[in-house]
C-alpha cells in the first residue's frame, strides 16, 4: 500500500460477497436432495392463493428444513400491502 493508496477509495466488497454467498448457498442447499415435488407444490399453492389474492410468483416460498429427527415444511407467503388472505 503506497501513499497514494491512502487517498484512493475502493469500498471493501468482501463482506458483500460473503453475505450474498451465505444466502444463495443456503437456499441451494435446502433445495438439493429435497423431494422433487417441492417446485410443483409451490406452483399449485400459488394457483390456489391467486384465486383469492393477487400475489407475485416470487411471494410464495416453500422450504423443507431438517431438524434432528424430523422435517419441517415451511411455507411463507408475502401478501401485497394492506390485503388479507
Amino acid at each position: 500500500m503506497g501513499l497514494l493508496a491512502l487517498f484512493r477509495r475502493t469500498p471493501p466488497t468482501a463482506n458483500v460477497a460473503k453475505e450474498r454467498l451465505r444466502i444463495i448457498v443456503a437456499q441451494e442447499r435446502s433445495a438439493r436432495g429435497g423431494p422433487d415435488y417441492l417446485p410443483l407444490l409451490r406452483r399449485e399453492l400459488l394457483e390456489v392463493i391467486k384465486k383469492y389474492v393477487n400475489v407475485d410468483p416470487e411471494a410464495v416460498q416453500v422450504n423443507l428444513e431438517r431438524e434432528d429427527g424430523h422435517e419441517v415444511l415451511e411455507l411463507s407467503v408475502a401478501l401485497p400491502g394492506g390485503k388479507r388472505l
Partner: peptide, 14 residues
C-alpha cells in the same frame, strides 16, 4: 483491505 474473502469466510460458507 477487505477486497477479498478470507479463508475463514470461505470455510464458513462451505
Amino acid at each position: 483491505t477487505g477486497e477479498m474473502m478470507s479463508v475463514t469466510d470461505v470455510k464458513d460458507i462451505l
